[in-house]
Design a protein around this nucleic acid. Structure first.
Lengths: 207, 207, 207, 207
DNA sequence: TATGAATGAGGATTCATTCAT
DNA sequence: CATGAATGAATCCTCATTCAT
């Protein structure tokens, strides 16, 4: 009589998460009510509390879960070890591809930070810094090795992250450009922004 | 019945605007109550309705006002006419300097768009596109003239705007870098990102 | 245009207090909703919050107010100074008469103590002890003077207070006995309980 | 189908009763949730419904059970037959001793009466009156026989019950006085309150 | 028996807004 | 202009109870 994997029990939990993600992304945490989330799941508001102790925990679960998944995917993306140029290119491709498919998660991870209670906020910040350090380390190594023309690795890191993540503000599937084309455009701009012009110095990959 | 400059009665209006700007930026439109705004001004909630018909009008006033001011300042910044390289550099400097001093306005102009009712939303979007077209035109002209190495002007424009505006997420006065230093870093990264490497091709300006 | 004394404004405040007193006494603090109180006043629940910050404050206001009034009335009852016998008799008469007309206040002052938050609880306890000390001091003086046959003034005090206050559990106007008759019965029992038998030793008063 | 003494399955029933007793006494019936009771037992809320049909039945069970036990103990206390003086003294000693060890039961038997539904309320009232008649009959007999100086047996009965039961409001084990000492104080006060002064007229007992 | 998930109602409180003064 | 009191709807969350497993 064991519960079949994926059966009832976990089903509502997952659906609540999904509904909350979508609604928070669309209208903002503060503007979404537990009733709306419940309605989208097809359940009464009280039922949510069998799975999450409160609204804040739902938000925290989404944000922290997103950051953990991002870091795990980054670790497994095979970015290192390689030359700084190659690592930077791999990072850009990873970031674009990972973020473009998780528009809602990325959006709330930036927008709803201020709605996290202090402990949850700290946890997300710590995770975010861990991710951003990957890029900063690449930039620092490249600068030290003289292959990047960056006057300030931390600022360059923030600038590149902002540029890349910005893709989510305008990209929609079915538009003028494919993900691959977009990826190429951003790779080129980022590489140039740190002084790498010759495509020959870069890795050839496309997937 | 236009408000006489500096006349009595204008004081509360301005203070409500200021308080709302700060509170919306800090906590988000949906999470801020009229009572909070009123309290910050030192007035009862009802008094706000002598100056703004409702909460939405307050938000719209802030966002539309911000976009109009931005466009006006941009028009008066003397960016054009010049060579694409020079215009781009001027645009970057203008954008950084203008935005770095208006963190709250910039923040809500991005964050609270979704809380605008349709008419107000359209107006802000129209203004924003008008501003962004300044950059896109520069990029298109430079690409056409063969001085920028950009494969896609619209995407490059979005990328550059995202990169530049991102400065507000981390910049604080009194930090490691001065505004001027930051400006130089961003100018260099943006120029390089579109293929301009030789500083000699750029204008010398600092203020 | 000044508000007429006792007009609107203070009216709702007083009516809320009165309704809450009655409902708390009848059903208990925890079992009464703000909506019920509001309904009894003929107002929406939210309106109560213009007069009391929350439900707890309403309870605290009732209990603390009751204790303060009791102490004030006791101070003004002219119990002291006199011989211990006379003071005791006066105290009994005061207590019976005061409590019999304030059944609701007395009831909740005992029943709802546990629903007070710590600070409010302490305040009420302090006031209660101040009142009960009046009786204890009379008993102690009488014992010291050898006119009361009490082995333990504090216990005797608790016992007498309990006996007297118990009148509220059964007394109803229009019953078999008048307040004056009840007063006489209790005076006699209390005086005897501390060893005073001869009515000649007691004061003659009736009002 | 009567529950076999000590049989399995009875454990949860008893623990629920015990937990409810404690929690109702501490926080009041209306303020205690089935979940709290269940948590104290270490069980889910639903499990309680295997033993009690609903929350009201739990309360009724506690109150009616208490009253039945009290009456049974009173019947078996060997109060009658004896002279009114001796019977009164025996009653006082029984009441004090029985009540002082059942603080929670006594407390809720007074406090939660109003939360009983009509049928349960009537049953408890009937039982209570049966118990209180024991004292009233003693007082009436004593008055008729001219050994008690009571002008009104019913009122005297209420007064004495209130005085005695009041001991629970302040008594705590480990305090200044032992149960036996307290018993003596109350015996003396009660006997005197009905006019019996000479200890020689009283029974000598202590246990 | 016990669980865990669900319901539907209701809890205290807050909200944007109105309006007589 | 500003106040303070009011409304009616909505907020998050908890409740007693049910029921399939």
């Amino acid at each position: 009589m064991a519960r079949t994997a994926g059966s009832v029990g976990t089903k509502t939990f997952d659906e609540v998460r999904k509904a909350a993600l979508q609604l928070f992304a669309r209208h903002g945490y503060a503007a979404v009510s537990m009733r709306q989330i419940a309605a989208q799941v097809g359940v009464q508001a009280g039922a949510i509390y069998n799975h999450f102790p409160n609204k804040q925990a739902l938000l925290a679960d989404l944000l922290i879960g997103h950051m953990r998944n991002l870091i795990k995917a980054c670790d497994e993306a095979g970015i290192q070890p390689a030359s700084p140029q190659v690592e930077l290119e791999r990072f850009v491709r990873f970031h674009i591809r990972y973020h473009i498919d998780r528009a809602d998660e990325v959006f709330i991870a930036y927008m709803e930070l201020r709605n996290l209670e202090p402990d949850n906020f700290r946890e997300v910040q710590t995770l975010r810094q861990r991710y951003e350090r990957v890029l900063r380390d690449i930039l620092r190594d490249g600068a030290k090795a003289g292959v990047f023309e960056t006057s300030d690795a931390p600022v360059a890191g923030m600038a590149i992250i902002a540029m890349l993540t910005g893709v989510n503000t305008w990209f929609r599937y079915g538009g003028r450009l494919s993900v691959t084309q977009i990826e190429e455009i951003y790779v080129k701009m980022v590489m140039q922004s740190v002084g790498i012009f010759d495509p020959a110095l870069r890795e050839e990959e496309n997937a």
